[in-house]
Nucleic acid binder design. Sequence first.
DNA 1: CTTGACCTTCCCATGGTGGGAAGGTGGAGG
DNA 2: CCTCCACCTTCCCACCATGGGAAGGTCAAG
Lengths: 136, 136
Amino acid sequence: MTPIPLTIGEAAVASGVSAKMIRHYEEIGLVPKAARSPSGYRHYRDADIHVLRFVRRARELGFSMKEIAALLGLWNNRRRASADVKRLAMKHVADLDARIAEMHAMKRTLERLASHCHGDERPDCPILDDLSGATR
Amino acid sequence: MTPIPLTIGEAAVASGVSAKMIRHYEEIGLVPKAARSPSGYRHYRDADIHVLRFVRRARELGFSMKEIAALLGLWNNRRRASADVKRLAMKHVADLDARIAEMHAMKRTLERLASHCHGDERPDCPILDDLSGATR
DNA sequence: CTTGACCTTCCCATGGTGGGAAGGTGGAGG
DNA sequence: CCTCCACCTTCCCACCATGGGAAGGTCAAG
């Protein structure tokens, strides 16, 4: 019943983080250095997989590496205040909002320009006119 | 009345593209190589500034460098079909839509998690629970 | 014992952008 | 004319997150 540790490839499958990225996360200090077998192979236990999954999930939610480092710190700190976690999350929501608004503005502009473009064989095109600075 | 060419710094101010980026655009072949003074200084005429402004505007609308290269090609091709421009623009709108949807999904998830987080001194926090894979 | 799948480290690429070092140029004021 | 400063040049490095691939070591199955 000794828990057999996983190799990095198995850990990648188990966590959903590529082996490349696991090494990278270790290198930049986001996750602790993995234990090594006598021959130098990294090996991973349940707790390590857990951390990797945490990182993957946070990436899926769009957190930056710095934010994830902070989240991992809070996760590992049993005396954290949930307010700190919430603040970090809401800050990220605000960032998302800003980026969404920016892209939405681009989208609106493009749709407006495209709606005036006949989109046929003729060369004249309000989209290019806008880009070239005409009539602005 | 000979048009005095601008230095790269002046071109940067006139176009809104930093000198760094002007050199970069030239290096990757996005814009043609600038003419040079005898001492090697790049110099820019109105037409060149026009191109740089085109690039800046396209970047503001979120087009990638590859897309901008294509747009510049169409811009310079008097026999272009406006349909080609429109297709490129609408493809970009679709890309924006996809990214917006992705970020919106992140936002929704985070808001839901945060709404269940009391955000006070206590350590227990549904946000961290979700990230750590609990109750999924 | 060979073979093939895996592991290791190392370097390079992406996409845009910026910082900065080391050295040359140009123009204005003394 | 000389000096000074702002500008120009090229070159390398950094970011963030990820992937590709080379060269060489390891392990297990056949």
